[in-house]
Write a protein that binds this DNA or RNA. Sequence first.
DNA 1: ATTTATTTTTTTGCCCGCTGAAAAAAAGCT
DNA 2: AGCTTTTTTTCAGCGGGCAAAAAAATAAAT
Lengths: 405, 405
Amino acid sequence: MMKERTLHHDLDAREMTRLRAFQCIREAGQISRTDIAKALNSSPATVTSACGALLEAGLIRDVEAERTDATQRGRPRVMLEVNGEALAVAGIKVARHAIHVTVVDFKGVEIGSHLSPLAASCMPAEALVMAVRQALDDACEKLGLSLDAVAGVALGLPGFINGETGFMHWSSSVRERNVDFMPLFARHLPCPAFLENDANLVAKAEQFFGAGRGLRNFLVVTIEHGVGMGIVQDGQLYRGERGCGAEFGHMKVQFEGAVCQCGQRGCLEAYVGDYALIRDASVGRQGDAYKSLTDILDAARAGDRLSGEVLERASKVLGVALASLVNLFDPEHIVIARLRPRFDEAHTQAMLDALKRNTVQVDAPLPGITVRNLDQKMWARGAAAHGIERVSILKIRARGDQDAA
Amino acid sequence: MMKERTLHHDLDAREMTRLRAFQCIREAGQISRTDIAKALNSSPATVTSACGALLEAGLIRDVEAERTDATQRGRPRVMLEVNGEALAVAGIKVARHAIHVTVVDFKGVEIGSHLSPLAASCMPAEALVMAVRQALDDACEKLGLSLDAVAGVALGLPGFINGETGFMHWSSSVRERNVDFMPLFARHLPCPAFLENDANLVAKAEQFFGAGRGLRNFLVVTIEHGVGMGIVQDGQLYRGERGCGAEFGHMKVQFEGAVCQCGQRGCLEAYVGDYALIRDASVGRQGDAYKSLTDILDAARAGDRLSGEVLERASKVLGVALASLVNLFDPEHIVIARLRPRFDEAHTQAMLDALKRNTVQVDAPLPGITVRNLDQKMWARGAAAHGIERVSILKIRARGDQDAA
DNA sequence: ATTTATTTTTTTGCCCGCTGAAAAAAAGCT
DNA sequence: AGCTTTTTTTCAGCGGGCAAAAAAATAAAT
């Protein structure tokens, strides 16, 4: 059996129809069968049968008919929605000093969260997996939940992760390189496990809950210590050939430019990543270097020239790099998510200006831009979203097996 | 009817199977039914019926059984191939000073070519279409071919062309902006017409005849006056949301860098495009500026310092930009095609070194790289390839209609 | 209250492509 | 000639999707 490129492999035609119907329902929140038929471009009969299977499986349910104000004649439509109580899914993100766990219901509504401190920011794979398992157990206990009630766990790691194969090429949180992480992880869990690159998780979060709803072709850029990106094309994460593309942070913005933490020169990250700003703004302040971005922002607001210039320059460089992305990908939308300190409006504006000025002009509207603050919970939420998606595929496939039996 | 994203719309399941079989045969050159079944992952019965339809339509034919040396028992396999004589297709490329026409048979074998000089490098759309039609007529006459024998014409234009809709946002060859070019073009032709961005055509040529055969995920970069790119993902041209992405030439490689012909700063084109090299190498030679890249190459070989440095720098910048591409797209393969003057091995090597040094390291093999000289005929050949693809879709759909009748 | 109109949903029967199995075809080998 | 091997074709059956019809549920009209 050859290795398939999509995650929808081994779903037959009928299961694909069910999955599409399910995803349509999830995306819409609430939707009637007729509208699903329109959205899927298929017949009502097909939708009825697909939804019948989903209802029987308990994955969706019909919702109490809301009294519509618009006085409608005819048989009232029955709205369908994802049955939140059907399943619980855990999303886990490994950060530098903590493991974030969030447990959501099948609709993506948060049941609860938990944060486990992490002793070391980099440890052996085996130890990390144990720590993750412990964090999950703690979270379940805190929420009064049995681990058996969790239908799937999705884990997000920084670094070069092939989400399709579950192979970890490199991660800043793991001592070893080239670990076949997925089996290791799955061995310590009583339920299906999924692995994904952390920037891709933010993309998933946007697709499920944010600016990416209903879009099929968008980019999500994350800016924190480093710079990451998730690419959604045709509604699916684009992973590249080896499963580790989308390294926007290491796109070169300056020939023979500043040194990046990856050892190369001119990477975007070396101009707009947190560590780069701290480095640049601290020049000439030996012994009194800034500790965090917040310090720099405060200094700039207090009138410090260098800090202001560093921030302005970073904004412009980021805008130019984003313009390159637009020129290359021509996406429908871009989400720019920056962690922690809320930037001044002026910086955002400088970034957007640079973006606009450096985009190839086509007399067609620019892609939509969303600038948002990225909070720590987004990753775990994205992991949960990813988990929901993967588990729903499993559940729909499982139904098929039962039918056959 | 909503606008579909793929070119395979309105092909039903059976037609899709036929198309896939046809494409498999075209890609393989010669292949037996059993091997097609393996390649398409479907049953021999299905392949027989699909090929039956294709045979009946005359699109393919079975080839005289080649005596295999390996003494094989059993019923000898019947090899199928595209029936070259089935149809003729014309590929046309509008260049700055000429219109290239190439007519190929359905297998892509060149029947003949023609080159019509073009008075002006930029003219009104209407006039350009007339000139193209004239060039096509001339080519047919020269080849002793009736225009009726041409089943389709594919036209390549430089600029921002939406190949899907046939809309021209901007082209250096056309006076007006935002012309709905396709209908205009089709009105002057007795056969189906197709339009495409010229860099995408080179990608098509590589996919059909070159390094892209059998690959589903590769990039083709063209370097001439400007720099272009074609993106093939999952076997299809990636066009972006507005149909005019892949502007590699306007990816920014230097913050506030050299001025590009597009008016912006720091574009790759402004460092490696022909005009940029001529500009840079001619500094300080007022009245004695270089006229062409060849001059610069000659000067460098003769020991001119500046020319050598300009070439070396361009090679390095290109390598770095390509590394950014790899980091973003993680493709299976990259084809780098440079027009006209064959560069010295040293420059190619400098480019590849820079590419390698600036690629994010993953302990996984780098994408394959093909460096080739791009000759003028590639565009027209690519246009022809594009035409073949589009015409085969039309023909397969047409069969369906006949069946229905 | 009953009927009519309207809209959504379900049921039913049919069509059609794909498939597996078996048959047929076309060789080579003995 | 008979057996083996491999490819190709035939054929019956399965199963998904769809159009049409039926059913259901309501508003408006009489």
